[in-house]
Amino acid sequence: MLTIANRTFQSRLLLGTGKYPSLEVQKKAVEVSQSEILTFAVRRMNIFEESQPNFLEQLDLKRYTLLPNTAGAKTAEEAVRIAKLAKASGLCDMIKVEVIGCDKSLLPDPVETLKASEQLLEEGFIVLPYTSDDVVLARRLEQLGVHAIMPGASPIGSGKGIINPLNLQFIIEQSAIPVIVDAGIGSPKDAAYAMELGADGVLLNTAVSNAKDPVTMAYAMKLAIEAGRLGYEAGRIEEKNYGVASSPLTGMITS
């Protein structure tokens, strides 16, 4: 069970809701993923054009925990403003702090992320910061009191998977709070790997929404995360440089 701020979840897959090819595909993908936590962005309503169906408004809100993000914010101040708007809906009190510092790499701004997290904790939010895989930054965020750490595997939407497993491992080892690998997941092996390293969960969006078959990919990710977690709990074998036979060395008919 994944526990975040005294709330428990069966699923360790947190799913993004952006960029799906259609509402129908999105609904099915969310369903088969069995995810219980869905991220959303906070934006101006498009009131000047004809109303498009809105995914959130069609969702059974009793089944899901909403995790709005502060995407779009460049500063802590903007992130706090977005978070408060989200909370004002009355639908959620968790916030994914996302303050991007570079438009090309979409890597997070560590300083603004730290500031935003601190302010939002003071305001009583359940804070889940999206951060780089900087080990010391992760520690500082944890010291502030954030409720989970969400280090990136690689840049958002890049599909590169885990490019620095060592850093992730350090972060996982040092954290008493849940570590949710967020950003850059490309295929099921990446999600499984994150879980095998000891992560508590995985947050992904593009890997599913932009797959050729998002519904099948959502299901694959669900299985990968379950397999990775079980593998972690089962205690894998050590890596060795040389071979160790699997069949007995005694009683051979050739001796």
Binding site: G18, T39, F40, A41, R43, R44, L91
Partner: peptide, 10 residues
């Protein structure tokens, strides 16, 4: 005045 809502996002 800003009228805000939730949309899909990661």
């Amino acid at each position: 005045v800003e009228l805000i809502h939730f949309v899909g996002g990661g």
